[in-house]
């Protein structure tokens, strides 16, 4: 054991290798570029689907925020809808009482959600099992739901918040009936936030989160401050969820209690699992799959689409994400092997 191991800064070769690893991880992959090209193309090629597409993007952004804490930090939660709902209400209230300018509402919603995340985050750090975490987060979400239900002078209660009006975006682009502005707006916000989230998870900080996820005890003994790091990512995730909620309010110009309901938190988990946990695009891809399936099933059986949704989920979980994800690769390898033989 030499001194270099104990000193705070590792020797140059190790630092270089770490830096190289980090850059390699952060490099853009062709599939990612293709993904965003497809997203941009959908804006121009599917003009009559913009309303549905906006919904998908908002759900995707929400699922992405969940991925940050479940997939990267390994914290399970059933109450992420709290931040989504808070963001939605703050954006709605801002437009009514303060200013109808959309970006201000977005920023305020983000701040409020992040503040709630910071305030409730320490509850997750209790010496507790997954179940306790699930229940505490669920409890927080239900408390917020009840609060919004009771405070009807502020939130409109069960009738929803009426009279949300949003000014044109940047003073220029009016929010139209076909959702064209809305979709562009959601897409750009989501793109920017994905970039930021991507930067975060590929940074040394992001790597330390993965270390915590894989083994919190070891991470702590390596000198990673587990508590503050988890708190930070939780708040950031809450911030993104708040923005997703605000986008929903601003594009639909309506907020109802539904944004805080339990099924939001459950749905977004399903979305994330459909798309795959822990690679940032899982949420977005899952949202596309979820909404298309939902659309398709509810066209087939308007009342009982939940059954088929459940069945799909059941099959996905039973087969296992890993096997589905590696299926193309295994097929390719088999083809290669046969080609060579």
């Amino acid at each position: 054991m030499t001194d270099t191991f104990l000193s705070a800064t590792p020797p140059a070769p190790i630092r270089q290798r770490a830096a190289r690893d980090l850059t390699r991880r952060a490099r853009w992959k062709p599939a990612e570029i293709l993904f965003w090209l497809c997203a941009a193309a959908s804006f121009f090629l599917l003009p009559d689907q913009h309303l549905l597409l906006s919904e998908i993007v908002i759900l995707g952004l929400f699922a992405l925020s969940l991925d940050l804490i479940i997939g990267y930090a390994g914290v399970v939660t059933l109450g992420h809808g709290a931040f989504f709902g808070l963001g939605a209400y703050v954006a709605g209230l801002t437009s009514i009482h303060l200013t109808a300018e959309p970006l201000t509402g977005l920023a305020l919603a983000a701040l409020a959600a992040a503040a709630l995340g910071l305030a409730t985050g320490p509850l997750l750090l209790l010496r507790a099992s997954d179940l306790t975490r699930l229940m505490v987060t669920l409890g927080v979400a239900m408390l917020l739901y009840e609060a919004a239900n009771k405070a009807s002078w502020l939130t409109g209660g069960a009738d929803g918040l009426q009279g949300v009006m949003i000014d044109p975006l940047l003073g220029r682009f009016e929010f139209d009936l076909f959702g064209t502005t809305a979709y562009g707006y959601c897409l750009i916000v989501t793109f920017v936030l994905t970039l930021i989230a991507r930067r975060i998870v590929t940074s040394p900080y992001g790597l330390s989160l993965r270390a915590i996820r894989d083994n919190a005890l070891r991470a702590r003994s390596m000198g990673i401050p587990v508590g503050p790091r988890l708190l930070a990512i939780y708040a950031f995730s809450a911030l993104i969820a708040g923005i997703a909620g605000a986008l929903l309010t601003q594009t639909t110009m309506f907020v109802s209690l539904d944004v805080l309901a339990f099924h939001r938190s459950a749905d977004v988990l399903l979305v994330l699992v459909l798309g795959g946990v822990g690679y940032l695009y899982g949420g977005l891809i899952g949202a596309v799959a979820f909404k298309l399936l939902q659309d398709w099933f509810s066209a087939l059986t308007p009342q009982y689409w939940m059954f088929w949704m459940g069945l799909v989920l059941l099959v996905v979980v039973l087969i296992g994400r890993d096997r589905i994800q590696t299926l193309p690769r295994t097929l390719m390898r088999r083809l290669h092997a046969e080609g060579r033989a």
Partner: peptide, 16 residues
């Protein structure tokens, strides 16, 4: 997490 999802799926199916 997988158990949670699996059983939520069952709940959905049972309800429908």
């Amino acid at each position: 997490l997988e158990q949670v999802l699996f059983s939520i799926a069952l709940v959905f199916m049972a309800m429908a």
